[in-house]
Amino acid sequence: MAIVLDKSHRWRVVAAHLGLIAFISLCMFPFLMILSISLRPGNFAVGSLIPDQISFEHWKLALGISYQAEDGSLVTPPFPVLLWLWNSIKVALISAFIAVLLSTTAAYAFARMKFRGKKHWMTALLLMQMFPTVLALIAIFSIFDYLGSYVKVLGVDSHWALILAYAGGIALHVWTIKGYYDTIPVEIEEAAVVDGATHWQAFKYVLLPMAKPILMVVFLLAFIGAIIEYPVASVLLHQEANLTLAVGSKLFLYEQKYLWGDFAAAAILSGMPITLVFVLSQRWMVGGLTAGGVKG
């Protein structure tokens, strides 16, 4: 592409770059701030962005390593941050997996099958999810409290209860995936059905492979959602060893003493799995998987 360009074009490019750089700085600032706080000795929320003195004390604590303070006393990690991180990852992975499983199949039914009241069900699903979860916190707590008296592993203070609660929030994912299915020509699955496939086989061998990118997107969204979720987790999990990182890091900020530095290190840690999953899943999020199937 070598389109002939106007002279003024150069200046517009420069201006656009400046604008973009300003915007990126704005986005990056909070992150850099947190990073700076976590590397600053002591627990101060305010201070210069570039710390005068770099100290890894907060990181050591976050990673579960004791260190010698300046006055000679040994500072031991107050909370099991790595265990919380592991809890978060475990819950997020399993609930994201279940969310994808449920929403792909539900979306298939909504996109391809004929049943009464399909449209209304879709809308109802979305409307119900529109209510803020916070409003239902008491209900969620009492449901799982009650469940726990019958099925222990689904009771309060169990990760499975949290996973189940998260897996319920798939309405948006169902919509997302259905929207993608709708863009895939039905004829391709019909061809599979004439070729001898059952509905299930047409779904598994034909539709699903074409829908990979959107499944990855939904997995990622569900994963991130579970990692950063606070209200439900804070109601369902109580014992220190069971907490997720999002709930646990709040313990650094108790009334009398705000441990900003330790909190910042934990906060950055919680971003790690998200980054990792994002990088790993990116290779699946490619376009053009349905290209060539039908004549457009």
């Binding site: 020509p185 004829e187 391709i188 019909e190 059905v193 004439v194 492979p209």
Partner: peptide
Amino acid sequence: PSKRGVAMVFQSYALYPHMSVHENMAFS
């Protein structure tokens, strides 16, 4: 459809885009 002994060629071809030509033909 699968029990009727018919094969159909669609106007839009309706090939399986994620399969090779060989896999497309071998699918049934």
